[in-house]
Nucleic acid binder design. Structure first.
Lengths: 137, 137
DNA sequence: ACACAATGATACAATTAGTACAATATTAGG
DNA sequence: CCTAATATTGTACTAATTGTATCATTGTGT
C-alpha cells in the first residue's frame, strides 16, 4: 500500500476556491516529482478529513484532475496518478506550475504596492545576483 | 472560524452614505487592531440584518474594501481581512520586502527546476498579462 | 420638475455541504 | 475454495450559504 501522505497547505481565506487549491497543489507535486505515476492518492474521505473540508470538495478536485488525465479515479478502488501521463501533459504541467508560481509572486508584489516596473527590475536584479553566485562556483 | 461581532455605529441622519460609513469604520477598526488580517467578516446578509440595511449596501461597502485590497471576498464562501495588508512602510523597508519576496520566488522556481531564462521570460509574460488586464478597466 | 446618488428588491452564480447510491474490494461462513 | 454479507470507495443529485448583477425606488439638491 503506497498511499502518499500528501501534505497540502490550504488557505481558507484565499480568493481561490479550496478545490482549485487542491488541484494545483497536486499538479505541482506531480510536476516536481513528489508524486509519481502509479502513486495512490488518499481517498476522498481521508483527504477531506485531514484538510477539514467536505469530501465532495476533494471529489470535485479529483474529478477535475481525472478529466485532465492526471489521475485515474475508480469507484470502489481508489485514485491513482496516471501511469503514463502523456509527455505533453507533464510538459504542460511544468509550464503551468511556473505560471502559477509567477502569478502568485506578482500579485503578492502588487498587493504590497510595487509597480510592474519595480517588479521586473527587481527580478532582473536578483536573477543576475543568482547567476553570478552560481558562476563563481 | 472566528467571525467577529463587528459592532458598527451607523448614523442614518448623516450626510455620509451608509456604505461609506461601513467602509471607513471597518478601515479604522483594522487600523486600531480590532480587526486583524485573516479575520472573517460577517456575511453581507448577516451584517445587513444587524445594521437594518439592505444587504446590497453592505455588499457595496465590501466591494469597495475589496477593490482597495483591504478585504478579500469570495462568492460562496465569505469575506476576510486581507492577510497581507498594504503596508505603509518606509522606502527602505519597502525595498527590502521586494528583495525578500523576489528571492523567495526565484529560489522556489529554481528548486522546481526552471532555468533563469525561463523564469525571466515568464515574469515578462505574466507582467504583460497583468498590465493588459489592468488597462482594460 | 429634474438629475443624480443612495438604497432596496429580485434574480443569479459559485462554492461547499448533505444524503443516498453504485461499483469494487474484503471478509466471514460453509 | 466459493459465495454472500459487509465495508470501502467514488458518484450523483440536491440543498444551503455565500457574494454578484441588474434594475427599480427613494430621496435630496439644484
Amino acid at each position: 500500500m503506497s498511499e502518499k501522505k500528501l501534505t497540502l497547505q490550504l488557505d481558507f481565506h484565499s480568493k481561490l476556491p479550496i478545490y482549485t487549491q487542491i488541484v494545483s497543489q497536486i499538479q505541482s507535486q506531480l510536476a516536481n516529482g513528489i508524486l509519481k505515476p502509479g502513486d495512490q492518492l488518499p481517498t476522498v474521505r481521508a483527504l477531506a478529513l485531514e484538510l477539514r473540508v467536505n469530501f465532495n470538495t476533494v471529489a470535485r478536485a479529483y474529478r477535475m484532475l481525472d478529466e485532465a488525465r492526471i489521475i485515474s479515479t475508480q469507484q470502489g478502488r481508489g485514485t491513482y496518478i496516471t501511469e503514463i501521463p502523456p509527455p505533453e501533459v507533464t510538459k504542460k504541467l511544468r509550464e503551468e506550475s511556473l505560471v502559477e508560481l509567477t502569478n502568485r509572486f506578482i500579485s503578492e508584489a502588487i498587493r504590497l504596492g510595487f509597480s510592474e516596473r519595480e517588479i521586473s527590475q527587481m527580478v532582473r536584479d536578483r536573477l543576475n545576483v543568482h547567476k553570478e553566485a552560481k558562476d563563481k562556483e
